[in-house]
Nucleic acid binder design. Structure first.
Length: 441
RNA sequence: GUGACCGUAGCUCAGCUGGUAGAGCACCGGGUUGUGGUCCCGGACGUCGCGGGUUCGAGCCCCGUCGGUCACCCCA
């Protein structure tokens, strides 16, 4: 912009939240918060920025390019805006050590910052809901965490036909890989290969599989296992057959299956053994939540990471959790008409208007104040005009439920209450106004 | 960091092989000096992202630049 007036816009990949956008964001956040609380999780938060080293511990120096990092003018320390919450969480848990009552059930919904090129479903600043359950092992804990995620999605109006939790398990996959001839040391690289299989040409996939010690036949089976997708409701026998393995290999999946079924989540979930999650620190169950047809990026991702707290200097303790960003979720909701922001803005219960008579002008502020003190959402017009039509138009514009018309009938203690949806109106006693409005809510 | 596409009114967009800009919505006013959300009539609205070049003439073609979108990389 060569213009001297220098109109500075918002930085790339950030969003301005005008009232309708903010209403949509709060709608999502309240579903997150209420689901968390109803499942027994407590809300926490940490600093917006941390020492840069907190992020390089887990992810290496390579991550620095993806961070917004800075030093204070004249300062020594390097900080970074948080790109994820997990390191902060691990730091907080490690700092309190054994004094925290177990299990730890925490959630938060902070802003995150990543220095990436923005694209569909990915911005440089976004909200991410994090839910973590620390100190409990086993399928019950994994499923509890998945339940929270599904509860929030359900409260936002989504159904199992809209989104699916795709689940796998690193221990089970490791067992399957070893059965195919992968050595113990080869399991890690095999996960990486599994994670990238869709981006590699078939020959390249085969070549790398061979590098892991897999025969052409085993490579073929590896590929089939990687593409295995089954409803969680399928029997264990079907699952065993699909992956050409034995029951002992997929014990972990069987216990997840039992638990998911008993809490009523089976139809929300499916097995997808191609899910490994990029991060090396996952140790057991891994899952991603996707739009059902796979149209968008993952809505959420998580799993079990039993050595994470230890990695940040705390005691070894079992842990699982997930993160869900607001960007992809909002796209999915909007696609399905579940995020009509205009309808999410607060609606006034009453819109007060005066016809300009002396008593009406004098009484309006008193009524407005008393309604508000009673917890009624009440507004007035700021227009100079006393044209009732114009004022009603104002009332309709903000989607008020009722218009309250004040005029000389106040001398008899009466006001006109007009139902703006139905168009009907009647004179009521001013003394009854507050009660009627509260009752109509 | 790499690549593709796109920048025209507040918003969504149209604009022919180059001839100095249009629609819908929104907004304001009127129809209605006390009855809105529908309807009818009228009005206002632009440095065509910015800078340069070609041309008698550029919204249109060329170069650059800034911004946006999407994909790759990466995805915690």
């Amino acid at each position: 912009m060569a213009n001297a007036s220098q109109k500075i816009q918002n930085p790339k990949g950030t969003r301005d939240f005008y009232p309708v956008e903010m209403a949509a964001r709060r709608h999502v956040e309240s579903a997150w918060r209420s689901a968390s609380i109803d499942c027994g999780f407590d809300e926490i938060d940490g600093p917006t920025f941390e020492h840069l080293e907190l992020y390089t511990i887990k992810s290496g120096e390579g991550i620095v390019n993806e961070l917004f990092s800075f030093t204070r003018a004249g300062g020594e320390s390097t900080y970074a805006l948080r790109p994820e919450f997990t390191p902060t969480l691990a730091r907080m848990v490690a700092a309190k050590g054994a004094q925290l009552p177990m299990p730890i059930k925490w959630f938060c919904m902070p802003s995150m910052f990543r220095a990436e090129r923005p694209q569909r479903g990915r911005l440089r600043e976004f909200q991410q809901w994090n839910v973590d359950l620390i100190g409990v092992d086993g399928a019950a804990a994994d499923v509890e965490v998945i339940s929270v995620a599904v509860l929030a999605l359900e409260r936002l109006g989504l159904k199992p036909t809209d989104v699916q939790v795709r689940i796998s398990h690193r221990v089970a996959m490791g067992s399957l890989l070893r059965r195919l001839g992968v050595s113990d040391e080869g399991v890690g690289p095999a996960f990486e290969l599994l994670d990238r299989r869709d981006k590699l040409p078939a020959e390249e996939f085969a070549k790398r599989a061979a590098g892991l010690g897999l025969s052409p036949e085993a490579t073929d089976r590896f590929d089939r296992v990687a593409r295995t997708k089954l409803p969680v409701s399928s029997s264990v026998a079907d699952l065993t057959a699909a992956v050409e393995a034995q029951d002992s290999d997929i014990e972990a999946l069987a216990s997840l299956r039992e638990r998911l079924t008993s809490v009523g989540l089976a139809e929300w979930c499916s097995w997808d053994l191609g899910i490994v999650r990029g991060l090396a620190y996952y140790t057991g169950t891994v899952f991603e939540i996707h739009e059902a047809t796979g149209a968008e990026r993952a809505v959420a991702g998580g799993g079990r990471y039993d050595s994470l707290v230890e990695l940040f200097g705390g005691p070894k303790m079992p842990a699982c959790g997930f993160g869900m960003g607001d960007v992809v979720l909002s796209l999915v909701l909007a696609d399905r008409g579940l995020l009509k922001a205009e309808e999410l803005l607060p609606r006034p219960d009453a819109f007060l208007l005066s016809n300009g008579s002396e008593i009406a002008e004098r009484t309006l502020p008193e009524v407005l104040g008393s309604l508000r003190r009673a917890g009624v959402h009440a507004r007035q017009s700021y227009k100079q005009t006393r044209n009732i039509g114009k004022l009603l138009s104002d009332a309709a514009k903000v989607r008020a439920r009722f218009a309250v018309i004040l005029d000389d009938k106040l001398n008899d203690g009466l006001v006109t209450l007009k139902d703006l949806a139905g168009g009907t109106q009647s004179d009521i006693r001013l003394d009854d106004l507050c009660g009627l409005l509260r009752q109509a809510r």
